[in-house]
Amino acid sequence: MDNLVEKLKSLKNASVHEYHEVIQKHSHKQVVKELKEAGLSIEDVPPEEFNQLLQSKIKENTSFAKGAMVAGGAILFLQLLG
């Protein structure tokens, strides 16, 4: 999580889309790691199941990142992500 916040903070003049992209990539990596730990690969999981896992991770990471960025004083991020 700290890693994600650092990545987001390092973005200068980034658009909302770019912020979302970083969160999405980070979430994707986390889900793949979870699957690996469970002894599964992406191919073992039905696409809709994988998507469900990914979307809930994105939601969790976005919420966490917003909080951490606002607490860190990154007001621009607050404005961008609403």
Binding site: L35, A38, G39, L40, D44, V45, L53, G67, A68, V70
Partner: peptide
Amino acid sequence: KLWTIHLERSTVAFKNNILQTGSGK
């Protein structure tokens, strides 16, 4: 095996809720 991931996540969600993680932020 896929289900164990859901179980892990539900347990973490409960723990975060009890600790009110993220409050004030």
